[in-house]
């Protein structure tokens, strides 16, 4: 398959974006990083991403709302929610609203890569992610 996996990462912690950008690029994803929901939603209007990774809790707008917007626009997109402590209720709500999977903070880059690989599988990108995972010394 020629098409590369497009991933949008939304988290209001700048360091998260800075670290995930190279981590995901390594497995052959086109990564776009956003720190605020507003610009991210703008971008989502322009482009249908394969995968959206969003923090479930942010200052301006929470991840659930982002999830809703993405699902409205492109139900095919796989949305992975980054959850924190004490947001079990929200996680349940997100699941009902069509979230693909969850990953709890704090997580390792590899854990996210595994979830993304799973999502890619479900989209038909077979072997993409797994192949790109380097051996960790």
């Amino acid at each position: 398959m020629d098409e590369r996996l497009s991933v949008l990462v939304l988290d209001d912690e700048p360091i998260v974006g800075r670290r995930l950008q190279p981590a995901l690029a390594k497995i052959g994803c086109d990564v776009e990083i956003f720190e605020a929901p507003g610009p991210a939603l703008e971008r989502l209007k322009e482009k249908a991403f394969h995968i959206v990774v969003t923090d479930i809790r942010m200052d301006d707008m929470d991840g659930i709302e982002v999830l809703e917007r993405v699902m409205e626009r492109n139900p095919e997109t796989r949305v992975i929610m980054i959850t924190g402590y004490a947001t079990v209720e929200m996680a349940r709500e997100a699941e009902a609203k069509g979230a693909f999977d969850f990953i709890a903070k704090p997580f390792k880059p590899q854990e996210l890569r595994d979830v993304i690989a799973k999502a890619a599988d479900s989209l038909g990108f077979h072997g993409v992610a797994h192949a790109a995972v380097p051996d960790v010394p």
């Binding site: 670290r19 995930l20 947001t87 903070k105 997580f107 880059p109």
Partner: peptide, 19 residues
């Protein structure tokens, strides 16, 4: 919960540094 953010940042940064 609040601590989760810096810890997550540390975790990601340390992991990527190692990788």
């Amino acid at each position: 919960h609040e601590l989760n953010n810096p810890i997550n940042n540390i975790m990601l940064t340390a992991e990527m540094l190692k990788e």
